[in-house]
Computed example of a mutant assay.
Amino acid sequence: MPAKILWVVNYDDVHDFADQAEAVGATGVAVRTDNDLGRAIDVFHDRGMQVFGWRWPSAKRDPAMREAEKVASAFVAGLDGYYVDPEGAPGRPYDWDQPGLEALADDFCRLVVDAAAGRVFGTTSHYRAAAVFADLPWQVFFSHADVLLPQAYWRVEGGVVGHGIPEDNYRKSLAFWAAAGADPALLVPMAGELAFARPREIAAYAEVAVAEGIDELHFYTYLDSVTEAVWTAVRDA
């Protein structure tokens, strides 16, 4: 069955989020790990949906490994998978675009993958990969992942990304990640951001996924400001 995953940063009420996920036909949700994962697991499993955690972890060893340990505990509680989101962020504690972080990345991934015990472990980040974050330890994260999620967003809060064309960013994300060493068979580009998307763009994103033979759709992110027309397009995707 094709997968449709609705991502979220934070929510006011987990049941409202679950209602929307159910309404658009989501098969699962990706919940940032600073939410109550245990409660989300209970609520979504009761509705027949999977729950994946996600987070951009710190690039500092102690807090990074605390995140990995938190995820390991969530797997014990029934978490269905986890997506790590290493990003470049100069001057911030979660800046992974620095040389010398390979060992930390490996330790982080190993702890999570061991706890996952065959459940999903994925990596997501900027759609241009090493072309924008040259020092990020891409190969380490790729080597542990069984799904790779380039953020092929075409419009975000800061404005248009690339040329603002879903099909173009989708295909470019495949090329950029493959150039960084990703296995093309594992690539599943993400759509976003929903709050700034138009219905026809959601349809175009789904159409290019079909054309590329990819049967998994990821939508970033659930917000109250997403229009009903966009939600309908996500439902129909």
Rank of each mutant, 00 (worst) to 15 (best):
P150Q: 12
T124C: 15
H126S: 07
A129S: 06
G162L: 06
T123S: 00
D106K: 14
A130R: 14
P150R: 07
L104Q: 10
S143D: 14
H144R: 06
W154C: 12
L186H: 07
P199Q: 04
G162Q: 02
A204T: 02
V210P: 03
R110P: 03
V160A: 13
A195S: 09
P189F: 06
I165K: 08
R198H: 09
R110Y: 12
Y153T: 01
R128F: 00
Q151E: 15
W177N: 05
A209Y: 01
G158F: 11
R128L: 11
L148Y: 04
Y170H: 15
A134H: 11
E167R: 15
A129P: 00
V161N: 05
A130N: 09
L104T: 01
V132Q: 02
E102T: 04
I214F: 05
A179S: 14
F108D: 01
A117Q: 14
A203W: 03
P189I: 00
L101F: 10
V208D: 03
L174H: 13
E212Y: 07
A152M: 10
V147Q: 06
L194V: 03
E207I: 00
F142Y: 14
E193G: 08
G159F: 12
P184L: 00
W138L: 02
G122P: 02
L187G: 10
S125C: 05
F121M: 13
V113W: 13
A178K: 07
G164T: 00
H126C: 01
T124L: 14
A180G: 13
G122Q: 10
A203L: 11
A203N: 07
G118W: 08
A131L: 11
C109L: 13
Y170V: 01
T123A: 02
R110S: 12
L186R: 09
Y170P: 06
R200V: 02
A115Q: 11
Q139A: 14
A175R: 14
L194R: 01
L104N: 12
K172M: 13
T123M: 04
L136H: 00
V208G: 06
K172N: 15
T123P: 00
G213H: 13
A116F: 07
F141M: 09
S173K: 05
D107G: 08
L101M: 12
S143N: 14
A197S: 15
